[in-house]
């Protein structure tokens, strides 16, 4: 399976221009015979939206932008980021990721963990999603995550427990930390790679991470998108801080091979985890 990673720098607050660049990249990926293209978090709008978030929110069932992307998805599967105004909960806007395939919306994941501290203020402008649910695609059961979701390992665990062989994270992660003279990238990039390696290995799953680049209001998005194999091996890493469109061959049959070598998936007991969590939550609940 050939996966295209679009490590782009979206224009902040201009979905028309971003749609155009998405369609351009999709065209190139289709020509390269990729079967999936992944864009970063909030790729249709840019990240530092503040009060623009509700103004640019889309209802996937009615949006003309979605219509264009659904058409494009007849040739190639798409994952991208957008602000969702949900049909079922008008007035609430989510930082969301969509998976489109063959003209249909296969899944929308609403970011659960909204960073709201230090330089981040997502909780001020977005509602939080409430579930992690893997879904079937034509090739492999897949789980979607948005940026910070990936750093909470329970999120990936849910996809693992649900049988996902492919975990895709779309991201707008700023680079921070310049203290390490030897590194090619920011210190925080290593944090993502550490998680990528661990999650791919212990879930025996392909882990795809697409991060953006560019600058917004002084924040420096780090790039460094990557793919890890189900054996925890780095398949590809894109450059830090530079735009790129890369086509990466991924062997999905490795999922089965990894699960035979390391039977984490076979031996997993989600019901024990669930019962333990239930007890922990009940006992730590404050009245």
């Amino acid at each position: 399976m050939k996966i295209a990673l679009a490590q782009i720098s979206p224009v902040l607050g201009n979905p028309e221009r971003n749609l155009k660049s998405h369609l351009d990249h999709i065209r190139k990926a289709t020509l390269a015979k990729a079967s999936l293209i992944v864009f970063p978090e909030l790729s249709l709008t840019g990240y530092t939206l503040k009060d623009l978030a509700p103004e640019l929110a889309l209802n996937p069932r009615k949006s003309p932008v979605f219509k264009k992307l659904l058409e494009a998805s007849r040739a190639i599967d798409l994952v991208f980021g957008f602000v969702e105004e949900a049909a079922d909960e008008p007035g609430l806007v989510y930082n969301a990721a969509a998976y489109l395939s063959r003209g249909r919306i296969l899944h929308i994941h609403r970011k659960v963990f909204l960073p709201t501290s230090g330089m981040f203020e997502e909780g001020r402008f977005f509602a939080a999603g409430r579930q992690f649910r893997p879904f079937n695609t034509a090739r492999v059961k897949t789980g979607l995550l948005v940026c910070r979701d990936f750093l909470h390992y329970g999120s990936s665990y849910c996809h693992f427990a649900g049988g996902a062989g492919l975990i895709i994270t779309i991201s707008a992660a700023p680079g921070r930390g310049i203290d390490e003279p030897q590194s090619q990238g920011f210190e925080t990039s290593q944090m993502w790679e550490l998680m990528g390696q661990a999650v791919s290995f212990f879930s025996s799953a392909v882990v795809v991470y697409c991060n953006r680049v560019g600058y917004e209001d002084g924040a420096v998005f780090a790039g460094g998108s990557f793919i890890y194999s189900p054996f925890g091996k780095l398949v590809a890493r894109l450059p830090y801080l530079e735009e790129d469109l890369a086509f990466i061959e991924v062997d999905l049959s490795e999922i089965g091979r990894a699960r035979k070598s390391w039977p984490f998936r076979r031996d997993e007991r989600p019901e024990v985890i669930w019962q333990s969590l239930e007890k922990i939550i009940r006992e730590s609940h404050e009245d």
Binding site: P181, S183, Y215, V220, L241
Partner: peptide, 20 residues
């Protein structure tokens, strides 16, 4: 407190270019 100078140069020249 030591800095990764090549990374800082790359980041800041990119910042100047893009923000300008």
């Amino acid at each position: 407190m030591k800095i990764n100078a090549p990374l800082v140069v790359k980041t800041l020249t990119g910042f100047i270019r893009e923000e300008t």
